[in-house]
Nucleic acid binder design. Structure first.
Lengths: 108, 108
DNA sequence: AATATTCATCGTAATTTTGCGATTAAATAA
DNA sequence: TTATTTAATCGCAAAATTACGATGAATATT
């Protein structure tokens, strides 16, 4: 009997994967950590903290913004970025739900 | 004055990014969730649960194994996979440290 | 021994990601 | 007004990811 196969991933799995993809590069992790550490919203100083060109950092900022992890607000010629708390809370919840129930399953 | 630029990412950021990359595809998230739900170690049944060809699923399993998230043990012609608890604990810790301190920073 | 099952690996194509310099747009400063 | 600063976007090249069928290796079954 030929086996039937699922046709899609669940929206939860897609959502988690999308968030994970947003953090799947050390530059983007560094940006998030920077914004988490400094209580003030940093902007172009992020570029100075990363071993990448300005245009590349801008791309990573856009990726984080598209994923909903950060927000940017214009202040003169500068742009001030900060974390989007609700999204990060959701990430914590999603990853928590994913991992919480597996504390003592050593089956191999 | 020309600005100095960092030359590397921290090992912590690299580590988090690597873990995030392992979960940056819905198929791999689905595999982890499957292994977290079933207390028994599943093997090729994973293929039937995913909308992907066997060879593709095998690649995703390898990616998860290379990242240290799962382990596989051979049982006859079958292979039994299970989660690698320590790595998942480390992920929880790393992401927890990254996100914990940012509860009430709304600066934008 | 011959066949079947299970799963990893190979080879390849299509797509996505990453990175940079150059350019552009917008606001400020001179 | 004319420069200068800041940051986004464009265009492009290199690398990585994703997906599949075909093949191979190992064990189990007949």
């Amino acid at each position: 009997m030929p086996r039937t196969r699922k046709t899609e991933f669940t929206s939860s799995d897609n959502c988690i994967a999308e968030y994970a993809k947003a953090l799947a590069h050390p530059a983007r992790v560094a940006i998030v950590r920077l914004l988490a550490q400094k209580q003030t919203c940093i902007c172009g100083d992020i570029v100075d903290e990363l071993p990448l060109a300005q245009s590349t950092v801008s791309q990573h900022l856009k990726a984080l913004k598209d994923a909903g992890l950060i927000q940017g607000s214009i202040d003169g010629t500068k742009v001030c970025y900060c974390l989007h708390t609700e999204a990060l809370q959701q990430i914590r919840d999603l990853f928590g739900n994913l991992f919480d129930r597996l504390i003592d399953h050593s089956c191999c």
